[in-house]
Amino acid sequence: MATGGRRGAAAAPLLVAVAALLLGAAGHLYPGEVCPGMDIRNNLTRLHELENCSVIEGHLQILLMFKTRPEDFRDLSFPKLIMITDYLLLFRVYGLESLKDLFPNLTVIRGSRLFFNYALVIFEMVHLKELGLYNLMNITRGSVRIEKNNELCYLATIDWSRILDSVEDNYIVLNKDDNEECGDICPGTAKGKTNCPATVINGQFVERCWTHSHCQKVCPTICKSHGCTAEGLCCHSECLGNCSQPDDPTKCVACRNFYLDGRCVETCPPPYYHFQDWRCVNFSFCQDLHHKCKNSRRQGCHQYVIHNNKCIPECPSGYTMNSSNLLCTPCLGPCPKVCHLLEGEKTIDSVTSAQELRGCTVINGSLIINIRGGNNLAAELEANLGLIEEISGYLKIRRSYALVSLSFFRKLRLIRGETLEIGNYSFYALDNQNLRQLWDWSKHNLTITQGKLFFHYNPKLCLSEIHKMEEVSGTKGRQERNDIALKTNGDQASCENELLKFSYIRTSFDKI
C-alpha cells in the first residue's frame, strides 16, 4: 500500500482533458527560462521544448504516446526543470519506465491550478516501474492521483506527508504495488545497510526511497516546507523545498512566496507586481503582455491589467481597466465587458449561442446573426445582446428569417469595421425574408467608422429604411451602385405612401 494514499474509496472516473512563447529569463536562482504550460502528445517531438525550461508557468501534460519505446527515452533528460506552477499529468506514455532521468531536479509542483483537485496525476502508464522524482520536495496545493499503472512499484516507500501538507485526498490505487509483488529495495538494503531515512506512518517504520538508488530526502521537522541542505541544516524561511546553503534567500532552489532578481522575498516591493503567484514583474512586463494579447485571437491570451499590486489576466467583477495605466478602477454604474472572439468572429444561430455573449459591452471581433427560429426570440436576444455598444469588426445579418427588427441591439452605437466582410463591408444584410426595420432612427444613433453597407434580398425592408441608415451611420456616399439592390429590397412591402385627393359631386333626387 502506498504510504499516505487512500484505498478502496469510491472515486469519480478520471477524465483526461485534452506555445513556446518565453516569458522571460528567471535569473540567477533558476538555471534556465520560464516556459508556458505545455500539452505534449502523440510523439516526442515537442518534448524537446523543455530543454531550457527551469519553470513551467502553467501545467505540463505528457500523454497518448503509443509508439514510443524505452530506448526512445534513454537520452532524454531535462535537468534544468525545477518547478511547475500548476500540475504534472502523465497518461498512456508507452515505453517510459521512470522519471528519474527525465526530470531529475523537479523540486516543486505548486498546484496553482489543479487537474480535478490533483497536482500530480500518473494514470495508465503501462510501462512505468517507478516514479523516480527523487528531488520532489513540495506539492504546495492539491493532491496526488496514481492509478492503474500495472508495473509501478516504489510507492509504499514514499512518505507523501513530507511532500504535501495533507495526504487525506491522495488516491493511489490499482498499481502493481497493490499486489505486494514489488519487493522494493532501498539503497544499501541488499548489503544489509540502512542508507535512507525511515519514518513512521500508520504504525509502520519504513525506509523512504524513490528507487533502488535514490533515497527520499527527509528534512528535520523544524525546517517545515522550506527544505534543508545535504547536511540537514534548514533553508531560509522564504525558500521552498530545498537550498544549497542554509538561511540564505539567494540560495533557495525555489521560493515559498515570490522570486525577485535572484532572491526569494515575502512580497513584491514597489515598483514590482505579483505575477502568477510566484514571481515579481515590473510595469513594462505587464504592459507588454497586455499589448501582445490586445489584437491576438490565441486562446488563453489575456490583456493583463494591474489590481491590488498584482498583474492579473482581467479586472475583477465591479472594476474596469483604465487604459492609460492598466489599473483596475471601480465602475460607475454597470461595468464594461470586452469579449474577445477566439477566431475573430462568432455566429449567433440560437439563443444558446447568444447567451455566451451575455453582459458583453464591447465585441472584439465580428458578429454573424443567422437565426431561423426560436421561442420568445426578441426578448431572449435583447437579454443577451442588448448591452453590446461596440463591435470592432463587422455585423452580418444573414438568412435570419425569424427577425423582424434589429432593435434587440438596443445599445449598439459603434461598428468600427477594423475587419470587413469580403474585404469591403462593415454591415452586411443578406436574404432576411421578414426583416422590416433596422432601428427606430428617431431614437437610435449608430456610427460606422469604416467599410460599406450591403443589402440584398431583404424583400420587406424598404429602401427608405436603408437610406436612413446611410445618413445616420455616416456611410452615405461610400456605397457603390450594386451594394444596395434596388429590386430585391422592399419588393414585397408597401414602401411608397402617396396622399390621394378626392373630389365629389353631391346629387339628390331633384338636383344634379
Score class of each variant (00 low, 15 high):
H28C: 12
Y30D: 08
E33N: 06
E33P: 13
V34R: 05
P36Q: 11
P36W: 05
M38L: 07
I40M: 10
N43H: 07
N43I: 04
L44Y: 08
T45E: 15
R46T: 03
H48L: 12
H48A: 05
L50S: 01
C53H: 00
V55W: 03
I56H: 00
H59K: 01
H59Y: 08
L60R: 00
I62T: 00
L63K: 02
L63A: 07
M65K: 02
M65C: 02
M65E: 13
T68N: 02
T68V: 06
T68R: 14
D72E: 14
D72T: 11
D75F: 08
F78K: 02
F78L: 06
P79D: 04
P79F: 03
K80D: 01
L81Q: 00
I82D: 03
M83S: 03
M83Q: 07
I84F: 00
T85K: 04
T85E: 03
L88A: 01
L90S: 01
R92E: 00
Y94L: 15
G95M: 03
L96V: 09
L96W: 02
L99V: 09
K100R: 11
D101G: 06
L102K: 00
L106D: 00
T107G: 02
T107S: 11
V108S: 09
R110W: 02
R110S: 08
R110H: 04
R113C: 13
R113G: 12
R113T: 09
F115W: 13
F116W: 14
I122A: 06
I122G: 01
F123Y: 07
E124S: 09
L128Q: 05
L128V: 03
L128N: 01
L128E: 01
E130W: 08
N135G: 14
L136R: 01
I139H: 01
G142D: 01
V144T: 04
R145H: 13
R145P: 01
R145M: 06
R145I: 05
I146P: 00
E147T: 14
K148G: 04
N149G: 04
E151C: 06
C153F: 01
A156T: 06
T157L: 10
I158H: 07
I158M: 11
I158V: 07
R162P: 11
I163L: 10
D165L: 10
D165C: 14
S166R: 06
S166P: 12
E168D: 05
E168R: 11
N170F: 09
N170S: 07
V173E: 12
V173G: 02
V173R: 12
D177I: 15
D178A: 15
E180N: 06
E180V: 09
P187Q: 04
G188E: 04
T189D: 06
T189E: 10
A190F: 09
K191H: 05
K193C: 15
P197Q: 14
A198H: 14
T199Y: 05
V200A: 12
V200W: 04
V200Y: 13
I201T: 06
N202M: 08
Q204S: 08
W210M: 13
H212S: 04
H212Y: 13
S213Q: 14
S213T: 05
C215Y: 09
K217F: 14
C219A: 07
P220T: 11
C223G: 02
K224H: 06
K224I: 07
K224P: 08
H226F: 14
H226R: 13
E231L: 07
L233Y: 06
L233N: 14
C234E: 02
H236K: 02
S237R: 11
E238F: 05
C239W: 00
L240Q: 05
G241Y: 04
G241Q: 05
G241I: 02
N242M: 09
C243L: 00
S244W: 10
D247T: 03
D248E: 04
K251R: 12
K251L: 08
C252N: 00
V253G: 07
C255G: 00
C255V: 00
C255H: 00
R256I: 09
F258T: 02
F258H: 04
L260R: 00
D261T: 15
C264V: 00
P269G: 12
Y273E: 01
Q276H: 02
D277K: 09
D277W: 05
D277V: 04
W278S: 07
R279K: 06
V281L: 02
F283V: 11
F283Y: 11
Q287G: 15
Q287L: 05
D288V: 09
L289W: 03
L289C: 04
H290G: 07
H290V: 10
C293A: 04
C293I: 07
K294P: 05
N295C: 06
R297W: 06
H302F: 11
H302A: 11
H302N: 08
Y304K: 03
Y304L: 04
V305K: 10
V305R: 07
V305M: 09
I306W: 04
H307D: 15
N308S: 05
N309P: 02
N309Q: 07
C311V: 14
E314Q: 04
S317L: 08
T320G: 05
T320L: 06
N322R: 10
L326N: 13
P330F: 11
L332F: 15
L332Q: 10
G333L: 02
P334V: 15
C335Q: 04
P336H: 12
